[in-house]
C-alpha cells in the first residue's frame, strides 16, 4: 500500500513537471508567433490556467509524502519525544480528514461544472475533467497523510521512553 501510493505520487509529480514545461513552451511560442507572424496561438491563457491547476494538484501529494509542507517548530521541539510523535500522528490524521473533505467538496464542484457545461474561454475545453484531476491529487494527499498518521502512531506507541 505504502509503496504503491508513493509511486503514484512520484508519477503524478513527474506529470506535473511535464505540464510546467509545456506551459512555458506554449507561452513562448505564443509570444514568438504573435510578433513574427502576427498570429498568436489561440488559447495560451486557457492552457496556462488549466496547466497551473494540474501542476499544483498533481504535485501536492508528493510534497506531503516527503513531509515538506511548511510548519513552525520552535515550541514543538521542547515537547517530550513521545508527545511529539503522538502530536505528529494527530496532525497527520487531521490533515487526512481535511483532505478528504476538500476532495469530496471539489468532486461536488466538478459535478456542478459538468452539469453547467462550463468551459475555458478561447478553446472551450470543459473544466470538469481538470477538477477531477484535482480530486485525484487531493485523494493521494489524503492517503499519504493517513499513512503518515499510522506510522507516527505506531512509533509513538512502541518508542523506548528511556
Amino acid at each position: 500500500m505504502k509503496r504503491w501510493i508513493e509511486q503514484l505520487a512520484r508519477f503524478s509529480h513527474r506529470l506535473a513537471q511535464c505540464i510546467l514545461f509545456m506551459m512555458a513552451i506554449y507561452i513562448t511560442i505564443d509570444v514568438l508567433s504573435r510578433w513574427m507572424w502576427n498570429k498568436p496561438i489561440l488559447g495560451a491563457v486557457d492552457f496556462t490556467e488549466l496547466g497551473l491547476s494540474m501542476v499544483i494538484f498533481l504535485s501536492i501529494a508528493y510534497t506531503h509524502v516527503k513531509e515538506e509542507h511548511i510548519s513552525i517548530d520552535f515550541v514543538f521541539e521542547r515537547f517530550p519525544k513521545r508527545m511529539q510523535l503522538v502530536l505528529h500522528a494527530i496532525i497527520h490524521f487531521l490533515t487526512f480528514i481535511l483532505m478528504v473533505l476538500i476532495g469530496w467538496s471539489t468532486s461536488e464542484y466538478a459535478i456542478r461544472l459538468y452539469n453547467a457545461n462550463t468551459t475555458t474561454g478561447d478553446l472551450t475545453i470543459p473544466l470538469y475533467p481538470i477538477a477531477w484531476v484535482a480530486v485525484i491529487g487531493l485523494s493521494l494527499f489524503a492517503l499519504s497523510a493517513l499513512l503518515h498518521a499510522i506510522r507516527y502512531m505506531h512509533k509513538g506507541v512502541f518508542i523506548n521512553d528511556s
Binding site: 506551459m23 490556467e49 476538500i102 467538496s105 471539489t106 464542484y109 481538470i130 484535482a134
Partner: peptide, 26 residues
Amino acid sequence: AFSQLGRTPFDTASSYSLSVIPLFIL
C-alpha cells in the same frame, strides 16, 4: 463553508495571474 472549501482551491489554482509563480521559479 463546505462548498467554499471545494471551489476556492480549484479557483485559486487556475488563476492566470498566479501562473508567473511556477514559471519564474522554473
